[in-house]
Simulated scan of single mutants.
Amino acid sequence: MKQLPAHYYEIMEELQAVDFVIVELTLYLDTHPDDHDAISQYNMYVKTRKQIKKKFEKEFGPLTNFGYSYSNYPWDWKDAPWPWQV
Protein backbone atom coordinates (compact mmCIF):
# COMPACT_ATOMS: atom_id res chain seq x y z
CA MET A 1 0.00 0.00 0.00
CA LYS A 2 1.30 3.45 -0.86
CA GLN A 3 2.56 5.78 1.87
CA LEU A 4 0.17 8.57 2.79
CA PRO A 5 1.16 11.99 4.10
CA ALA A 6 0.32 12.99 7.68
CA HIS A 7 -2.12 15.56 6.27
CA TYR A 8 -4.30 12.71 4.96
CA TYR A 9 -4.81 11.41 8.48
CA GLU A 10 -5.40 14.89 9.90
CA ILE A 11 -8.22 15.60 7.46
CA MET A 12 -9.65 12.10 7.93
CA GLU A 13 -9.68 12.55 11.72
CA GLU A 14 -11.37 15.92 11.35
CA LEU A 15 -14.01 14.35 9.10
CA GLN A 16 -14.59 11.49 11.54
CA ALA A 17 -15.01 13.91 14.46
CA VAL A 18 -17.61 15.92 12.54
CA ASP A 19 -19.39 12.70 11.51
CA PHE A 20 -19.55 11.69 15.18
CA VAL A 21 -21.18 15.01 16.13
CA ILE A 22 -23.68 14.70 13.27
CA VAL A 23 -24.68 11.19 14.35
CA GLU A 24 -25.07 12.27 17.98
CA LEU A 25 -27.15 15.30 17.00
CA THR A 26 -29.30 13.08 14.77
CA LEU A 27 -30.01 10.75 17.68
CA TYR A 28 -30.80 13.69 19.95
CA LEU A 29 -33.10 15.28 17.38
CA ASP A 30 -35.00 12.00 16.99
CA THR A 31 -36.27 12.56 20.54
CA HIS A 32 -36.17 16.39 20.61
CA PRO A 33 -37.41 17.43 17.14
CA ASP A 34 -38.35 20.95 18.23
CA ASP A 35 -34.94 21.94 19.60
CA HIS A 36 -34.08 24.87 17.36
CA ASP A 37 -30.51 25.21 18.69
CA ALA A 38 -29.76 21.54 18.03
CA ILE A 39 -31.13 21.83 14.49
CA SER A 40 -28.93 24.87 13.92
CA GLN A 41 -25.90 22.96 15.21
CA TYR A 42 -26.79 19.98 13.03
CA ASN A 43 -27.02 22.16 9.92
CA MET A 44 -23.74 23.90 10.77
CA TYR A 45 -21.91 20.56 11.13
CA VAL A 46 -23.43 19.22 7.91
CA LYS A 47 -22.12 22.31 6.12
CA THR A 48 -18.71 21.87 7.79
CA ARG A 49 -18.64 18.21 6.75
CA LYS A 50 -19.29 19.12 3.12
CA GLN A 51 -16.37 21.56 3.21
CA ILE A 52 -14.02 19.00 4.78
CA LYS A 53 -15.14 16.32 2.32
CA LYS A 54 -14.54 18.66 -0.60
CA LYS A 55 -11.06 19.49 0.70
CA PHE A 56 -10.23 15.81 1.24
CA GLU A 57 -11.49 14.68 -2.17
CA LYS A 58 -9.70 17.47 -3.99
CA GLU A 59 -6.41 16.33 -2.50
CA PHE A 60 -6.84 12.56 -2.11
CA GLY A 61 -9.73 11.39 -4.29
CA PRO A 62 -13.27 10.19 -3.57
CA LEU A 63 -14.39 9.06 -0.12
CA THR A 64 -17.35 7.07 -1.40
CA ASN A 65 -18.74 5.72 -4.62
CA PHE A 66 -22.33 5.18 -5.77
CA GLY A 67 -22.88 8.82 -6.67
CA TYR A 68 -21.87 10.53 -3.44
CA SER A 69 -18.48 11.71 -4.66
CA TYR A 70 -17.27 13.11 -7.95
CA SER A 71 -14.50 11.33 -9.80
CA ASN A 72 -11.42 12.74 -11.41
CA TYR A 73 -10.37 11.65 -14.88
CA PRO A 74 -9.44 8.92 -15.33
CA TRP A 75 -11.79 7.04 -13.00
CA ASP A 76 -9.96 7.01 -9.67
CA TRP A 77 -12.23 5.07 -7.34
CA LYS A 78 -10.09 1.99 -7.96
CA ASP A 79 -7.00 3.71 -6.51
CA ALA A 80 -6.18 2.42 -3.05
CA PRO A 81 -6.12 2.95 -0.21
CA TRP A 82 -9.78 3.46 0.35
CA PRO A 83 -10.78 5.43 3.46
CA TRP A 84 -11.68 2.29 5.44
CA GLN A 85 -8.28 0.73 4.71
CA VAL A 86 -6.24 3.28 6.66
Rank of each mutant, 00 (worst) to 15 (best):
E10F: 04
K50N: 13
I39T: 11
Y68D: 10
I11L: 15
P83D: 04
K78A: 02
L27R: 15
D30S: 03
L27P: 07
N65T: 05
P33A: 03
M12F: 11
R49E: 10
P74R: 06
D79T: 04
N65H: 08
V18L: 10
Q3D: 15
M12Q: 13
F56A: 02
P81I: 04
M1Y: 08
E13S: 14
Q16W: 05
Y28D: 10
S69K: 08
K55R: 15
R49P: 03
E57D: 10
V86E: 14
K78L: 00
Y28N: 05
P74V: 00
F66V: 09
T48E: 06
D19P: 02
N72C: 01
A17Y: 08
G67K: 10
Q41T: 02
N65L: 08
D30C: 03
G61W: 02
F56S: 00
V86C: 11
K47Q: 12
W82C: 01
L63C: 03
D19V: 01
Q3W: 10
E59M: 08
S69V: 00
P83H: 02
W82F: 12
K58G: 03
W84Y: 11
L29K: 14
T31Q: 12
N43D: 11
V23D: 09
W77L: 07
P74Y: 07
N65D: 06
T31H: 11
E13W: 07
K54E: 11
I11P: 04
W84A: 03
D30N: 15
L15G: 09
Y45Q: 13
E14G: 03
K54T: 11
